[in-house]
Design a protein around this nucleic acid. Structure first.
Length: 895
DNA sequence: TTGAGATGCAA
DNA sequence: TATTGCATCTCAA
């Protein structure tokens, strides 16, 4: 059966608006026209059409402010909040979108979209037996239109999650037939339309009544058989109920002229013109793929085809002073990546090489500093070259689009429409999946011609966005961050990844076996204790099974969520002997599966792990590490800490770790110009102890207990993270008012902090982004939210990001400078890891004194050096950065 | 096979 | 109802 989609345009546009407002900031063209709702609307509609294979689609809109419903009810829809200002112009533009893409839309004076859709669905039901109807709306009133041929598509969360309602689903949800939806509505009312219904009758009562009497009329005919308060309420609300029912009833008798049904035929070029006009370039490619599907033909985008030369071997006659190049490789871990092709463009044209192995002329190109190379992801690119034995000059790579895009906008999921995002998500992430497929369906064996076209297409984008991106960086005052901090760091990280970390396989095997034995022993013990309660194949790693065992079978008390995490289990540890063993089991399992046995798959042939330092991932500017993550190796628990013994230094070096002491609090003191805090650091005092002194109002010579210090430490961190009194009371196991009092005392002790926090929130709200000292920005969409929780989250981001991010900026400067100094002093010692506030090196004994001196100086001076890089010297850096050092043959011995 | 949720590790 | 990350496991779609 052919399906026809009827869309409630107003409802969908509202939905699109709020969904996109949550997902990203308000999307605008360069001339300031808001387009976020359209973007979402177009996305939803085209993906729906393409996914669900409709024969035809019609969109209906409300027309004019007054409908017959207003005549019936003076305050119809009066309670509704005003349409957001930036949504209003989009009602017109969405019609333009439909026109340009050849989707028919309808509106009629004095009617709402409901009525048009209702009428159309009835027309189809009565006259076109070959069609069935699906109605896209978030208006539950429309449920009255459900029939054996008509269903409702209701958006659930976001925009892509839809639920299909037919008769059966409706019956299950509301226990009424479609024709009684209006009765239900009459009784319940609808606050969004200012319909009161019968006061005191809600969904439950209404359903009960209708199950007995079917309709409102039926209820009042039998009003005598209803007793007590309910009868009274119904009698009082009779007029309202009948009126509300009438208003909720969709008019299916509207006159609609020229209604014909014909196969969808989207106008691709019209659509592209529209999208380009409103600067939604990123949609062009995605939509055109879908539209191709819909129209059942492989239409070409109306763009000039890029002409390129496919070469067998490179010839340096084609090389220029400035070149753009892109090496294609889609393996997730580039250390094991395969090169699928290479495209180069410059003043002499576009070139494509399918195979670059043993191309000596190409190697000369890569080695020559006079041939500058601009690319996307330099670190990955040169890693691929290196692993294919192609020599290169690192310094000839002069532009990295990935890094530049990240500096412009670290929040890739944001729907902000700028070049950074286009480069990031559209071309280099989503497009790969479309082209090669993903997961098991991924296929690298694509015919060379279309692969070449695809790769050259990427290169073209890389090339065409280069200048605008550089201009944007300069415009945003972020060029120094890009050029002086992030770009030089690429080489530092590349070297770290290449050096890797040596693994002691003997130690690893020893610990793996030992831990596995302990786990099995524990399981036996637990099975004995629980022999009557669990079956042979009980899984101790399954939260679901643990939950059933502890709370249902044994009957231990639990919190509302029935969480079985460590915190919850510790609360009931004394109530059953198995809990303690279970916690121990969890700990050992984690150790075994993540840090011991789990590590084996990351060890390369050289007995080393080569992590990937992600430079463009976090929202704050920190690095992250993966495969393996070497930034979360256990340290707190003595037993788990043993795992650190597997990281060993090379024969002729020792590990040195240098970590900043409380760098985030120092950043906070400096940026917030908090004198009390600054003085604590200036006098080399213990910041947690001093905070305790303040909160607990201790005298100068009074002793600080370890408990007081512990509590103060929680505070100091809480300030950075935006802790609430609730969270604090939970954490410290004190009452909420008590926590609140402590917080007040804390802010009184450090008076500038509140001012600073407020200024950060204010700044982020005004600008739409939070920023670090180095002008790194993070767009904070959450601040625009009307949802209290989301907005509060935005507040915490606005405070935390500048602090955490500035600390990250400082680390990056330190790393760059150390790398440079090591090189200038011809040191063989090298950096191996960065763990947010700590840098780990392998240092040769003969170089120890010089290397340590360089590291300490670079780290201590990094904030000041940063201030020079971003030209903020006029405000001197007062805070002193303290660095602690430790030395060892393995990571266990560090710290 | 894939994705979400729970859990736990780090700064 | 505390920030930023990543890996592993289970379980259901």
């Amino acid at each position: 059966m052919k399906k026809i989609l009827l869309v409630d345009g107003n409802s969908l546009l509202f939905r699109a608006y709020y969904a996109s407002a949550y997902a990203g900031p308000v999307l605008k063209t360069t001339t300031g026209i808001p387009t976020n709702a359209i973007f979402s609307f177009a996305n939803m509609l085209t993906s729906l059409i393409s996914d669900r294979n409709y024969y035809d689609v019609k969109v209906a809109f409300d027309k004019s402010k007054k409908t017959f419903r207003h005549d019936k009810l003076e305050n119809y829809k009066a309670g509704r909040s005003a349409t957001p200002e930036d949504l209003i112009p989009q009602f017109q533009i969405v019609r333009e979108f439909l026109d340009s893409s050849n989707i028919s839309w309808w509106e009629k004076e004095n009617y709402e979209a409901d009525d048009l859709i209702g009428t159309m669905s009835k027309i189809i039901e009565n006259n076109f037996s070959e069609f069935e109807v699906e109605i896209l709306t978030s208006d539950k009133d429309m449920f009255q239109l459900i029939s054996d041929k008509t269903k409702i598509l209701l958006p659930k969360t976001g925009t892509s999650n839809l639920e299909l309602f037919g008769e059966a689903e409706l019956l299950e949800k509301w226990e009424v037939a479609p024709k009684n939806v209006v009765d239900l509505k009459g009784l319940m009312g609808d606050p969004s339309d200012n319909l009161k219904g019968v006061e005191g009758v809600g969904e439950k009562t209404a359903i009960k009544l209708l199950k007995e009497f079917q309709t409102i009329e039926g209820i009042y005919e039998n009003i005598d058989s209803i007793s007590g308060k309910l009868q009274e309420k119904l009698i009082n609300g009779k007029d309202s109920a009948i009126l509300c029912k009438e208003i909720a009833t969709i008019n299916c008798e509207v006159e609609i002229e020229n209604l014909v049904f014909e196969p969808i035929n989207l106008n691709l070029n019209g659509l592209i013109n529209f999208l380009e006009k409103y600067e939604m370039n990123s949609l062009v490619k995605r939509l055109s793929t879908r539209v191709g599907n819909i129209n059942g033909k492989d239409e070409q985008i109306n763009k000039e085809e890029i002409k390129f030369n496919q070469l067998k071997k490179w010839n340096n006659e084609f090389s220029c002073e400035t070149n753009f190049l892109y090496i294609e490789s889609i393996d997730e871990n580039y250390h094991k990546g395969q090169i699928l092709g290479l495209a180069i463009c410059n003043e002499k044209g576009f070139f494509y090489l399918n195979d670059i192995i043993n191309d000596l002329e190409l190697e000369q190109f890569f080695l020559n500093d006079n041939f500058k190379k601009n690319t996307y992801d330099i670190k990955k690119t040169v890693t691929l070259l290196r692993n294919n034995n192609i020599k290169f000059s690192f310094s000839s790579f002069t532009y990295d689009a990935m890094i530049a895009s990240y500096v412009l906008n670290p929040n890739v999921t944001s729907r902000i429409q700028n070049l950074a995002n286009i480069v990031e998500t559209e071309l280099f992430v989503e497009e790969d999946e479309l082209f090669y497929g993903k997961g098991v369906k991924q296929n690298k064996e694509i015919d060379t011609a279309s692969k070449a076209k695809f790769i050259v297409g990427k290169l073209e984008l890389l090339y065409s966005t280069h200048k605008p991106i550089i201009n944007l960086l300069k415009e945003n005052n972020q060029f120094n961050l890009y050029e002086k901090i992030e770009l030089p760091l690429v080489e530092v990280l590349f070297n770290m990844e290449q050096k890797g970390i040596l693994i002691d396989k003997v130690e690893l095997d020893k610990q793996t076996a030992r831990t596995l034995f302990l786990i099995e022993e524990l399981e036996e013990k637990m099975k004995v204790i629980l022999k009557d309660q669990i079956s042979e194949n009980f899984n101790f790693g399954s939260p679901k099974q643990i939950k059933e065992l502890l709370f249902d079978q044994i009957g231990l008390p639990s919190n509302k969520k029935q969480s079985t995490d460590k915190e919850a289990l510790e609360k009931i540890i004394h109530l059953h002997p198995v809990i303690n063993l279970l916690l121990e089991h969890r700990k050992l399992n984690k150790l075994y599966s993540t840090y011991l046995r789990g590590f084996e798959k990351f060890i390369f042939d050289d007995n080393k792990v080569h992590t990937i330092f992600n430079q463009t991932l976090t929202n704050t500017g920190r690095l992250s590490s993966s495969e393996p993550n070497i930034q979360n190796i256990s340290v707190k628990d003595e037993l788990q800490r043993e795992a650190r013994k597997i990281f060993i230094s090379n024969n002729d070096t020792k590990f040195f770790s240098f970590d900043y002491s409380q760098i985030e609090l120092r950043v906070l003191a400096q940026l917030g110009q908090e004198d009390t805090l600054l003085n604590i650091f200036k006098n080399d005092r213990d910041v947690h102890a001093e905070a305790a002194r303040k909160i607990f109002k201790l005298e100068e010579n009074e002793e600080i207990t370890s408990d007081q210090r512990r509590i103060a430490k929680v505070f100091n961190f809480g300030i950075i993270y935006g802790l609430s009194d609730f969270g604090l009371s939970n954490d410290l196991k004190i009452s909420i008012p008590e926590a609140k009092r402590f917080i007040d005392d804390y802010y009184l002790s450090f008076p500038k902090l509140m001012t600073y926090k407020n200024s950060l929130i204010n700044q982020a709200t005004v600008n739409g982004y939070a920023e670090t000292y180095a002008n790194r920005r993070r767009i904070v969409n959450e601040l625009a939210s009307s949802n209290f929780m989301v907005k509060n989250f935005g507040n915490r981001i606005a405070v935390n990001m500048p602090i955490q991010g500035t600390a990250a900026d400082i680390l990056k400067v330190a790393m760059n400078n150390i790398h440079k100094e090591f090189r200038e002093n011809n040191l063989k010692s090298f950096m191996t890891a960065q763990i947010h506030d700590e840098i780990i090196f392998e240092i040769f004994e003969s170089e120890e004194s010089l290397a340590v001196k360089i590291v300490e100086e670079c780290m201590q001076n990094a904030f000041i050096d940063l201030s020079k890089i971003v030209q903020k010297e006029e405000q001197p850096i007062e805070v002193k950065l303290e660095v602690n050092k430790s030395k060892g043959n393995n990571w266990f011995e560090l710290k």
